[in-house]
Write a protein that binds this DNA or RNA. Structure first.
Lengths: 226, 226
DNA sequence: AGCGTACGTGTACGGCGTACACTTGTCAAC
DNA sequence: GTTGACAAGTGTACGCCGTACACGTACGCT
């Protein structure tokens, strides 16, 4: 027998960058990105906080790594003669990835420098436009116009993470009626999903595609005109 | 003579919510929002950190207050028969306000619940559409499509706060040529501002208006079709 | 057998937001 | 003029955070 007791001290799964990232993704998935700290991450990996630093440089790099994981979930581009359909589909795939990790858009927003993975994604998207016949100039404008939409998200006006009880919510809406009549009008009568009659329910997927197509159609028109 | 020396202990300017907010805005303006902590804010006001809490509930409310200050700088809507011009102008005014406070868009993004000031602004914007003849449904879609643009900002792909020295930057671009050909192509040949031949300079104002008009024109077409 | 190297540990520092108990300054009522 | 209530500012303390730095420890190579 060796010096270590067999069952009591099983050889520990070694820490790797991948394991760190995956655990971080899991942690963020279940508790939001603000619940992700180096210390909690270390605890989840049953390791001391400083151990993480053998595998990632610092928290910023960790966040970059998280973004890379999410980008990695986006389907590769379809190929076809058209630029529009593959781009649309890829953006919708990106959106699906982001929906799986609701924290990801916020992390992407907050980052200052892109990782190679992100650059590769962007390069591929730009390539779809260029090979689709877009001029350099138009491609450039389109990139700006699309903004983060090429990553599958639009800026939500507010990210309502807090869900209060329905009665309080209803009371709030009623209080709004006088002060903010137009907001009241739109949020009380519009697109009613399976929730209550009153409430901020609307079909986000539909809205995303609506906006996406508004852009894509406008862009197509610009291209034809040029 | 009173117990206090006249010149040495001038009666202190009392803390007020307004003074706290204004100092916070100044601090953020000059150091970015990440350089704004309750403790630094207190130091700037020559006061102990906890003193702030007599005037604002907590840091979150402080951030809300900052947003309100910025929203307050947006010009009131022009009135005219048309919906489009006043909305366009107001959005551009919002953009001007945001340019004065570069941290503001990030703070707005990160907030979860709107303040009354923000709600009032939104209500006014929605009102412009509704009185301009938009149906409830279309107004709703348009709101989603515009996203944060109604506050005067688009999601920038990256917020490059770091500025490295030009030679290193040039070297980086050259390194990109092989790996990310399309990114390279677009960033090395496009709209050249007063900086170097190579570099990420482009006319942001133009790009913003380009995207804005792309949306507004598309929206107008939708309205006419309906 | 010995040793370099990679990996995990322990301790510590400075910063953060803020709870809670305190002093201090101001002014009204007597 | 004294008192006492009330608001405004203070001091101390707690638990969190990211991470620098020195230290063990185990394993592969010679």
């Amino acid at each position: 027998m060796s010096t270590e007791i067999e069952s009591g001290a099983p050889t520990r799964v070694p820490l790797t960058r991948e394991r760190v990232l995956q655990t971080a993704v899991d942690l963020a998935d279940q508790g939001g990105v603000e619940a992700l700290s180096m210390r909690k991450l270390a605890r989840a990996l049953d390791v001391v906080p400083m151990a993480l630093y053998r595998h990632i440089a610092n928290k910023d790099e960790l966040l970059g790594g998280l973004v890379d994981v999410v980008i990695g979930e986006i389907d590769p581009p379809l190929d076809g003669a058209d630029w529009k359909t593959p781009m649309r589909e890829r953006i919708l795939s990106a959106r699906r990835a982001l929906m799986r990790h609701p924290w990801a858009s916020r992390v992407m927003e907050s980052r200052s420098t892109p990782t190679p993975v992100v650059l590769a994604y962007m390069d591929s998207m730009i390539g779809m436009l260029r090979t689709g016949g877009f001029s350099l100039d138009l491609t450039h404008h389109v990139l700006h116009a699309m903004g983060s939409r090429i990553f599958g998200f639009t800026q939500e006006l507010f990210n309502d993470t807090t869900d209060t009880d329905p009665s309080a919510e209803a009371a709030m809406w009623e209080a709004m009626a006088g002060t903010y009549p137009y907001i009241y009008e739109i949020f009380t009568t519009i697109s009613h999903d399976d929730r209550s009659v009153v409430g901020a329910g609307c079909d986000d997927q539909f809205e995303f595609e609506f906006a996406l197509d508004l852009m894509l159609d406008g862009i197509e028109r610009l291209k034809e005109r040029a």
